[in-house]
Design a protein around this nucleic acid. Structure first.
Lengths: 163, 163
DNA sequence: CTGCGGGTAGTCTCTGCTGCACCATGGCCG
DNA sequence: CGGCCATGGTGCAGCAGAGACTACCCGCAG
């Protein structure tokens, strides 16, 4: 494995691994609670569309790392569920521009607020110092993670897209 | 939704939500890296079997919240991949006891060490204080989360099982 | 023997992904 | 202007994974 870790990277990683699993469990218990019966790829697609409203199928497929026709199928289902709008592009009529619907906006809002609520419930039971530490640590973690992955790293690819 | 949050639970939750997403992304980038082509349910099943070696199909089905025959099918695939052993129970020959194979043990070890390594790489780039804060915050979070969910809460069910 | 509980197996449905053939549009070049 | 190819999407199989329901077999215990 990696060889020249700092003095305590790995140890802390081991310590955090378990706790992170708990955070994770809490995190996506909210997902199940807020958007049951919405599959992973479907949710990912919504998030992609949210971030890049008006994206076309090719772009979506690229983001989701699938081929064009798969993305098309996926969109079929999303359109059928009333979660995305497929509008013919105004510039190039071959293209299709994808947009969220009010329905899916509400769904994403609901997901986020549910998540925050669930997280908040645990937070309320933590000590102020513990909360502060968590916020501080997580923020630095995020900053560092985004930093090392966002620039050039064809091989690394640690952070693809944060849900 | 919930009304009487403490003074800063929700605010911190919002602050953490984003960062947690990053942690999550890092966390399961390791999953993709270590165990590609192993589906979610399959991995979950392995973890259940690991925690309760010798479990029978009914137990597994209950843990995974699926019906018996679905679990049986899932095991078919796992057995076919050489990831679990299906041994007839010695006490009651109707039962089947499920065990990990050396192969799946190696796979889980690999998953965990990959995860720790990926996490460790980010950790190495964090300040010692940031690391300490993260560990402290996460540990307290875990403790509190386990505390409020493990005892009696038929409705809550916040933490089901930490992957 | 009968009943019950544990598992398997057949069949269905749905989602996700793929490959390939096909249609439409749009830009380019002769 | 009229082909021509590149590009964007769809339609049509086809496959695997997952889950469910049903029917069925087997072993155990009364």
């Amino acid at each position: 494995m990696a060889e020249h870790h700092g003095p305590d990277g790995p140890q802390h990683a081991a310590a955090v691994d378990d706790a992170a699993a708990t955070l994770l469990a809490v995190w996506d218990s909210a997902r199940e609670q807020a958007v049951p019966r919405l599959s992973g790829p479907q949710l990912s697609a919504l998030l992609v569309v949210e971030r890049a409203e008006g994206i076309n199928l090719r772009g979506l497929a690229a983001e989701l790392r699938m081929i064009l026709s798969s993305a098309s199928r996926l969109c079929d289902r999303l359109v059928a569920s009333g979660l995305v709008d497929r509008e013919p592009g105004r510039a190039d009529r071959r293209e299709i521009a994808l947009y969220l619907t009010p329905s899916s906006r509400a769904l994403l809002d609901n997901l986020r607020s549910t998540r925050r609520e669930v997280l908040g419930e645990v937070f309320d039971r933590m000590s102020p110092a513990g909360r502060a530490a968590l916020v501080r640590g997580l923020n630095e973690f995020q900053q560092v993670a985004m930093d090392t992955s966002a620039p050039g790293q064809p091989a690394g690819g640690v952070v693809e897209d944060a849900l």
